[in-house]
Write a protein that binds this DNA or RNA. Structure first.
Length: 218
DNA sequence: CTCTTGATCTTCT
DNA sequence: GAAGATCAAGAGC
């Protein structure tokens, strides 16, 4: 493990200008495990509520610090033009994993939300590593912790998520999700790397995190 | 630091 | 054929 613990209480922002979520978790246990019911709400409620939650795959992972919301009414969503072999799981019930191939070489993981047929999902874009950092470094061939999970393709490589994980349920092994111990400071902004519906502010992040795929403006 | 490019799978035109 | 919810390496400033 390579968690840096704070020298001072994290509720003194003038001493720690940029507290990371791992610092907060060191002072509180993980929250309750998230069940399928957590995802059976609007994707626009679930997405910000996932910031600060802990995601583990086979015990490796960390704190979700960046996500994006997609919905079938959204031209940027894979589900916008209806079901295909790739996006089929998005049209199923909430609480399952949707994994797709990105640009032919990377995998990206999503949590299906809302209800059967609504075809909405949250893309996991960045994680603050806390569990199994040695395994992540090996898989990513990268030492710098900030480079392990700072992007959707990096997250899947570090957590060894691939198409084999597509359609897995989110509340049973090998996947584990835990609610955040308290509500963190969340920022929203426009999504990354898309060319349709670019203006929609459906990217959410932990304010001030060093582990984002890209800073939020302001 | 920013910008460009290649890698190469799935879907859509 | 072309585009895309990406990343890493290399060139240039």
């Amino acid at each position: 493990m390579n968690i840096t613990f704070p020298d001072h209480p994290v509720w003194l922002p003038e001493r720690i200008p940029c507290p990371q979520m791992a610092d907060l978790l060191s002072l509180a246990p993980l929250g309750r495990p998230l069940t399928k019911k957590f995802f059976a709400r609007s994707v626009h409620e679930v997405a910000p509520d996932l910031i600060g939650a802990t995601l583990l795959v086979d015990g490796v992972g960390g704190i979700i610090v960046e996500v994006e919301a997609y919905h079938h009414t959204d031209p940027a969503a894979h589900s916008y033009r209806g079901p295909t072999p790739r996006n089929m799981v998005m049209f199923g019930p909430p609480g399952f994993l949707y994994v797709y191939r990105s640009y032919g070489i990377h995998w990206c993981m999503n949590f299906v939300c809302e209800k059967e047929g609504s075809a909405s999902a949250v893309l996991v874009r960045a994680i603050e590593p806390t569990h199994g950092i040695a395994a992540m470094r090996r898989r990513r061939r990268q030492q710098d912790e900030r480079m392990l999970c700072s992007g959707p393709g990096k997250v899947c490589e570090a957590l060894a998520v691939s198409n084999k994980h597509n359609t897995l349920v989110l509340d049973a092994p090998p996947i584990a999700l835990y609610a955040r111990p308290r509500k963190p400071d969340i920022v929203a902004g426009i999504r990354i790397g898309i060319t349709k519906a670019v203006e929609l502010p459906w990217r959410y992040g932990l304010r001030g995190s060093r582990f984002l795929s890209k800073p939020f403006p302001g």
